[in-house]
Write a protein that binds this DNA or RNA. Sequence first.
RNA 1: GGAUGAUUAGCUCAGUGGUAGAGCGUGCCCCUGUUAAGGGCAGGGUCGAAAGUUCGAAUCUUUCAUCAUCCGCCA
Length: 479
Amino acid sequence: MFNKRVKVKDLLASEPTGQEVIVMGWVRGFRNNQFIAINDGSTNNNIQVVAELGTFDEAILKRLTQSASVKVTGTLIASQGKGQKVEVKATTIEILGDCDPEKYPLQLRNRPSLEYLREIAHLRFRTQTFGSVFRVRHALAFAVHKFYNEKGFVYMHTPIVTASDAEGAGEMFRVTTLPMDNPPRNEDGSINFKEDFFGRSTNLTVSGQLEGELAAMAFSEIYTFGPTFRAENSNTARHLAEFWMIEPEMAFYDLEDNMNLAEEFIKYLIRHVMENNREDLDFLAQRLAEEEKQLPQDKRSEMGLIEKLEFVLNNNFERITYTEAIDILLNSPAYKKKKFQYEVKWGIDMQSEHERYLVEKHFKKPVIVTNYPKDIKAFYMRQNDDGKTVAAMDILAPGIGEIVGGSQREERLDKLTQRMEEMHIPVEEMWWFLDTRRYGTVPHAGFGLGFERMVLFVTGMTNIRDVIAFPRTPKNAEF
RNA sequence: GGAUGAUUAGCUCAGUGGUAGAGCGUGCCCCUGUUAAGGGCAGGGUCGAAAGUUCGAAUCUUUCAUCAUCCGCCA
């Protein structure tokens, strides 16, 4: 019976009246042969257990190594030391699982680097940094559902295995049960997918949007929140081959409604974490500040993590059109001093350096860019009356880049099919998608928010591989 | 996919052609109300791999591998 244990977080908040308590957790430190710091993941703080000298077997004390698991019974008393209010005076100490310090690869006192911790991702949750990151990640995921539930959105589970690659969002992972060394062939030598499990070629999903649109055409407002897969050979601190995405899709929404929802959503997530995970955020803020001390002055952030989050909460996102964005770039000192590596002119797909200039130098806050040229955006985005642009919107965040991509969708069947043909999208295969435009079509809109990018922004971590438990990136799927 | 850089002890790193180093961790001893506890002693590396240049290579050259950063693709 283990349920009598008190979590460390609750112990630390308790009044020390000498009550009997049971603590279980992992040893974080053992000082002076008397003071055991125990952590159970409920908080970054440890409970100090005092094993009075001479009262415990040397053989037991020797086994109190870092990350050994223990069960301690004792009394909760006010601490005589300065570092903590309460401590547990141990009456019994039981080792649940030993941890051989000569072999254990995670010695916290060594200040292991984030890169090294990625190599031992199965153990890195036992550090303060990853403890905080993943408690915050949990809180953000919970807040996603809370936000949409409060608004009456329906949570749709869109399929992971799909046959369509219509969005063209990227290279796809193939799903098949055909034998790799000897697949069935057609007469022309191509692989015969009619003999495959689904009787056709299938892939892992790159987006739940198209299916989401189908559901929105009945429930009015839905959202998806699930894993997404892109087989791009992307080697950056912002891309994963497997990542989680939130995709709301709303009938009776135009582009402005869409932007309003996205901004409210992001602020809701930040507020939720500020109110519920302050301790973890404070730790992460301190971690970030220490990391930035190593950087040259001009590369450090102007604001601390907490300051940055408060700033985002208290200010409206800047909203500009693509055309205005290009004008700002063309009139910028950076452009005049030829600081940009890539050309700036109307019609370009803005490069990272351009987006960063707008967000980090010019506006210094999140920016929503709208009405992009149609030629650089997806087929389903609603065509504006100017014939040149579509009702798209991207939200760019400082340090992260694109965190949201969305649009008002093209609800007019003729405009949509025309655009699909121009972009060589197989219209016949998409009959089910086009049916929504045939039968009771309505103006609607939606967006995708990259969950890990949101976690990056909130935690101040700089590499996306450090905000997902077991990152999937090119040449990496060890755990 | 492209560019740049890195790879030396368990970890973090120093070592630019002449016998392989530090801090931390680890082990043993001492101390005992500590807070990254303190003091002492000890063990620990064919310098990412292969080939080459050289009397001699961690150090120079080539190829490969892995990692990081930036770019492209996007969320």
